[in-house]
Simulated scan of single mutants.
Amino acid sequence: MPKRPSVQTTAAPLIPESPTYDKLRDAAAGCRACPLWETATRTVFGEPVGRPHGGPRVMLVGEQPGDQEDREGRPFVGPSGRLLDEALEAAGIDRSQVYVTNTVKHFKWKGEEGGRRLHAKPTTTEIRACLPWLAAELRVFRPDVLVCLGATAAQALLGKDFRVTRQRGEPVDSDWARIVVATVHPSSILRAPDPEARERQLDAFIDDLRAVARLIHGLGASGEGAHASP
């Protein structure tokens, strides 16, 4: 009996040798490492907003693209992205020094409401399948500061026992980057029950990003990020 073809369980075999951003983005466009590609419109890869000398100082990592990101093929262009832009500006972080990406590169959804597809949380298997892309992005850009936005990104990179509620805004020792910080995902602020709660949560989020801005300033203009883990 002929052997059944092996099942590809992670994106690791798809990572190009001597990867560059363009090589990674092109390779990820055809990723089939987990079933999410079947219902998503396209791969939504990370995006450097600017091309400053030496690469972005900060990498922001969320959970996965949302409905609008999936349609446009760009990360953080929906409501969460607009709130993130507002918070970055308030915190004094130059958007041109930021790279934005997600732990999972395809949109996972579970039905529609009002013409908008509803987000579904990715599984551990789906996160594990996609993690080689994120590891490769970190190797290419070597940011000074890595910011995990929300529990999915934080636990994918810092371990399943990590709790954003306990350690938000605090620098964490990690091989992924020179400095790693976790905070909430902007989408959690948008889900606040009332305007007052939203304002309080946004202020706390901006405070976390101000701490990141101080860390960048403390590293100096010539600081080099650490190599990411394989």
Rank of each mutant, 00 (worst) to 15 (best):
A153I: 03
L158A: 01
T152W: 01
R74S: 15
G62E: 10
G73K: 05
P75R: 06
C130Y: 11
L138M: 09
H106E: 07
A120E: 07
E89V: 04
K160L: 02
V140S: 13
D94M: 10
E63C: 13
A151N: 02
C130I: 10
V140N: 10
C130V: 10
S80R: 02
L83D: 00
V147I: 00
G111D: 06
A153M: 01
E86S: 04
D85E: 13
P132Q: 08
A91K: 07
L88Y: 13
L84W: 05
S96I: 09
L134P: 05
P143S: 03
A129Y: 14
R74F: 14
E113Q: 15
E63A: 14
G66C: 04
R82F: 06
W109K: 08
D144M: 11
C148H: 00
E69H: 04
Q68F: 10
V104P: 05
R71A: 12
N102G: 00
D70I: 05
D94N: 15
R116G: 09
K121A: 11
W109P: 05
K110I: 07
A153T: 01
G66Q: 07
R74K: 14
A87N: 12
A154W: 00
R82A: 01
G73M: 07
G62N: 07
E72N: 06
D70S: 04
A136I: 09
L158T: 02
L138S: 02
V100E: 14
G114A: 14
S96P: 06
R117P: 03
R74T: 12
L134N: 07
F107C: 04
R142K: 14
E112L: 06
Q97W: 12
W109F: 13
E113T: 13
V147L: 02
L134F: 08
T101L: 12
Y99W: 11
R95D: 13
K105H: 14
G111W: 04
E72K: 09
T123S: 15
K121T: 09
A154H: 00
L158S: 00
A154L: 03
T101D: 11
K121W: 07
D85I: 04
A129K: 10
G78N: 02
K110H: 13
G114W: 08
L146S: 01
F76V: 03
E63P: 04
K108N: 15
H119Y: 09
H119G: 01
L83V: 00
G150A: 07
V104F: 14
L134Y: 05
V147W: 03
F141H: 15
I127R: 11
R117F: 11
L134S: 05
C130Q: 15
L60I: 10
R117G: 04
E89Y: 11
R95P: 13
V100C: 13
F76D: 02
Q155I: 01
H119D: 01
E69C: 02
V104N: 08
I127C: 12
T103E: 02
R82W: 12
T123F: 14
G81Q: 06
P132V: 06
R116L: 14
T125E: 15
P132S: 05
P143C: 06
Q155V: 02
A136N: 08
G150H: 03
T123E: 15
L83T: 02
E137S: 11
L84G: 09
L88R: 10
Q97H: 13
L157E: 03
E126H: 08
A120P: 00
